[in-house]
Amino acid sequence: MNVSDGKRWIWLVGIAAVAVLAVLWLKPNDESRIRRAFAAIADMGAKSADENLVAMALKTKSVESFLATPCALSVPRAMLDGAYTPQQLVAACIQAKGLFRTCALSFHDLRIEFPEKDTARVVFTARLTGTLNSGESVNEAQEVEATLVKDGKAKWIFRSLTAVETLKK
């Protein structure tokens, strides 16, 4: 084996290692599925200025498929506390979005743990920005703790959402 053969082998091993890492990284796992669920909900939670009421309602209704029946909510700022059906929560979302001319929902700093099989605990920051119909700007951030479970189709759905009290008046 001469020097150029040795260099070629090093390159080949390096490329193979990168390929294996890329496959492992890109392979769908539970964590990436949960992140995708959050991204989908963020998309469904947004409202653009030119979006009509029917389109907004249909888009928001898609959130139903990400909610368990019932889904427990504890968000005092939104006056939500108790167990709700997905239909009730979607109706509340549509009503709330009706107050906005535009809005955007984003999720940050997701910390995902799996305390038991098919159950995930996610702590994250939810951020809502937008403009109300009155022209007033909204910029709210809230830390939330969520519990997700896998449904029969191996899809992650929300079983509970609890607002974490970061600042206690």
């Binding site: 940050h108 700093d109 997701l110 920051t125 951030a141 830390e143 600042l167």
Partner: peptide, 13 residues
């Protein structure tokens, strides 16, 4: 800066 779930979004107080 007061953190929420992480460092991406924080309160300034």
């Amino acid at each position: 800066a007061v953190r929420l779930a992480g460092l991406r979004v924080m309160y300034l107080k």
